[in-house]
């Protein structure tokens, strides 16, 4: 990480305007908030102010640190425009809701109110997130395992494909949430039936993409493996499955999207816990600040899970590096 040996000359510091962008945007957004708050009914905004103080202090510290850390500088150069825009968007949100009343209250509270709800209800939100995580993972993992097994069988064996494919084509496209009434009757507990529904939602894309990946394995890879002395187990596990992994990951991503949807719906109608339940509960009390707080948590939670899957893909598909982009 020596700047002198870097292939492209890297200036020793970010330009001044980029260093000032984040604290500047924070001052603008918070200044706007103070102006609006004078007209609006007094609300408790200490947490909102603290948030901006923290952002300003951290961004100044980073602006100094980047002079000594090229890696940090590279990251900041990449991320700072996005952070700046995000902070300014908070200001726009504030102006539209609290400032100009363009959106009706109480359905659209300002960012300060949402932050207050986020903090005051943190225990319940944390608890809900934890329950959602457990439910999501148990359903997702179950769906992936079953989907991989059925996908490999359908993709490899033509007789399994004959019987399995029609079943897949008929059952797969039904949204998992359509089964909720039946799942509630069949299963002993709401949690188990929800996990089953999530698994069903994941199973379809994973099976479909795995099967197509396996059956589209380049014939010449299999030919080469045969002339190297490979038997069936080698052909399946060391040729067809690795060759199908890029496809399998597409199925995993599609399944993950379907699992989020199914999770939230299943929680709001069946299970009495989790973020989906929290949203409909807060809606029942017309606490829209809490609804937005839960949506923010969901955004962070789901995108983190998605990012982890991307990281896993990058590790597993390291051999593809440079050949695909998605």
């Amino acid at each position: 990480m020596n700047a002198n040996t870097a292939p492209t000359p890297d200036p020793p510091s970010l330009p001044w305007w980029m260093q000032l962008a984040v604290p500047g945007a924070s001052l603008i957004t918070f200044g706007t908030h103070l102006l609006i708050a004078q007209k609006a009914p007094p609300v408790e905004t200490r947490s909102y102010m603290l948030l901006f103080w923290e952002i300003i202090v951290v961004s100044i510290v980073l602006a100094i640190a980047q002079r000594f850390r090229p890696a940090l500088r590279k990251w900041m150069r990449h991320m700072w425009p996005i952070f700046t825009a995000a902070i300014l968007l908070l200001g726009v949100w504030d102006v539209i809701t609290v400032g100009l009343h363009l959106l009706p209250l109480p359905y659209f509270p300002g960012p300060a109110a949402v932050l207050r709800n986020l903090i005051s209800d943190r225990e319940l939100l944390f608890d809900s997130t934890w329950h959602s995580l457990v439910l999501l993972l148990s359903g997702y993992i179950l769906g992936v395992i079953v989907g991989l097994v059925s996908g490999v069988c359908i993709g490899w064996s033509s007789s399994v494909r004959y019987w399995g494919m029609p079943l897949l084509k008929v059952l797969g496209p039904i949204p998992a949430t359509a089964w909720i009434p039946i799942a509630m009757v069949v299963s002993p507990s709401a949690i188990m039936s929800s996990a089953g529904l999530i698994a069903l939602a994941v199973w379809f894309p994973v099976t479909m993409l795995t099967a197509s990946g396996i059956s589209n394995t380049r014939a010449s890879y299999l030919d080469v493996a045969r002339t190297l002395g490979a038997r069936r187990l080698y052909l399946i596990f060391r040729v067809a499955i690795p060759a199908a992994v890029p496809n399998i990951f597409i199925g995993l991503f599609m399944g993950l999207g379907a699992s989020f949807l199914t999770l939230v719906v299943a929680e709001s109608v069946g299970v009495k816990s989790g973020l989906g339940w929290y949203v409909s509960w807060a809606q029942g009390w017309a606490e829209y600040g809490k609804v937005f707080a839960a949506i923010i948590i969901m955004a962070a939670f789901f995108s983190t899970v998605m990012t982890l899957l991307f990281k896993l893909r990058d590790r597993v598909l390291v051999w593809q590096k440079g050949t695909i982009k998605w």
Binding site: Y221, V224, L228, G229, V245, W319
Partner: peptide, 29 residues
Amino acid sequence: SAERGLVFQDPNLFPWLTVRGNIEAGLVA
């Protein structure tokens, strides 16, 4: 059979294996 090796015009290396992994493939198989 492993007694008759075959090399195509396209090398058909297994892209998910390193050079070493590809050369080892016959021994693993």
